[in-house]
Design a protein around this nucleic acid. Structure first.
Lengths: 190, 190
DNA sequence: CCCCCCTGAATGAACGTTCATTCAGGTTAG
DNA sequence: CTAACCTGAATGAACGTTCATTCAGGGGGG
């Protein structure tokens, strides 16, 4: 009798430990302890630590996408849609520091680079963000720069300020978030 | 006879290995081998691996500062000085991929967070970048945002595009660098 | 209804490997 | 010869992973 809740507990424990201490500060023994299972049990649900990490990331990515598209103003101009996504992204990360720090660990690792390469050059459906930029490029309302540069100029700073907030270098309130997201748009707009 | 060159070789080897494979892919035995010394010898020059890493970072930071301030147009307006620093930063990182990747590893680790906290809240002399932003704020030519946010909006994207270049997601030529640095300024200017 | 057997999820001690660090002994310069 | 320097095998801790064992609970025979 496989209990799905046990799988969830393992993923939650892994996410928390990796968020707090990084991949190498999250030994399987600790993950097991925090999940309330024995070390060996993890291997009934996941092939390896790599597999556990990828599964944890996949689940989080789904949650984040859901957060970004909540109340998505699909009929509004590109700029308003960008501001919406940017604001939602920062709000989600601030409200979920564990999830944010896991994502940071993930993207600053070979896992993340591989995942990004796949997104950029793979044949998978384009993300909502890529579609937004392509639409803006067609309308000639943003600078004609490569997609990765546009991402760096917009979502790059947003992630950076989330990190600074998590490290308590700054305090992001609603007004500062709005100003920052708007400044990102100012960087790429024509 | 302590040979200073041996210390340099150890630092160089550590930087290369950490850049290529991260902190945990750079065991002391490999560092020693690449430096052409025995494992134990490292401990004649450095207290611990932590110490070696911090020393390696300190040396690199000096090199980068030198690169940024080369031909620094101290008498020009703030914007020109910002463009100069931004361009030099990207050019240095592109010309020195090893150094760039080491710095990435360093800042995406507890070492980096501690270092940044020290820079922001310590009593040390202000960096050239902080001074530049403070001058711009006084002149009211950039948006009145907290220093970390200004850094995120400007140097954040620059580091991001350097990473994308290193991963071969984009190719940064002189024109694209200039466009990107200018876009960063557009994000913060009033 | 009870009892026995069987299934397979769960366990956690043990394994093999890898790591940072140490130190006894060899080597070299002066 | 002495002292400083260097070496690399040894050490012990920590890791991911394995697997012999345990045991709760479902089902069938009496």
């Amino acid at each position: 009798m496989i209990k799905p809740e046990k799988r969830d507990e393992i993923i939650r424990a892994a996410m928390e430990l990796i968020a707090e201490h990084g991949f190498h500060g999250a030994p399987m023994a600790l993950v097991a302890e925090r999940a309330g299972v024995a070390a060996g049990t993890i291997y009934r649900y996941f092939e390896s630590k790599d597999d556990l990490i990828r599964e944890t990331h996949a689940r989080l990515e789904g949650q984040i996408l859901a957060a970004l598209t909540e109340d998505y103003p699909a009929t509004q101009p590109v700029r308003e849609r960008f501001l919406h996504i940017g604001r939602k992204l920062v709000e989600y990360f601030i409200a979920s520091p564990m999830e944010f720090r896991f994502m940071e660990q993930f993207f600053n690792s070979p896992y993340g680079a591989a995942h990004r390469r796949e997104k950029l050059f793979g044949n998978k459906e384009k993300s909502i963000i890529f579609k937004l930029f392509e639409e803006a490029l067609e309308q000639q309302i943003i600078k004609p720069l490569p997609l990765p540069v546009l991402c760096a100029l917009t979502f790059g700073p947003l992630v950076d300020v989330c990190r600074d907030h998590a490290l308590e270098f700054i305090v992001l309130d609603e007004a500062l978030i709005a100003q920052t997201v708007a400044a990102c748009w100012d960087g790429v707009k024509l």
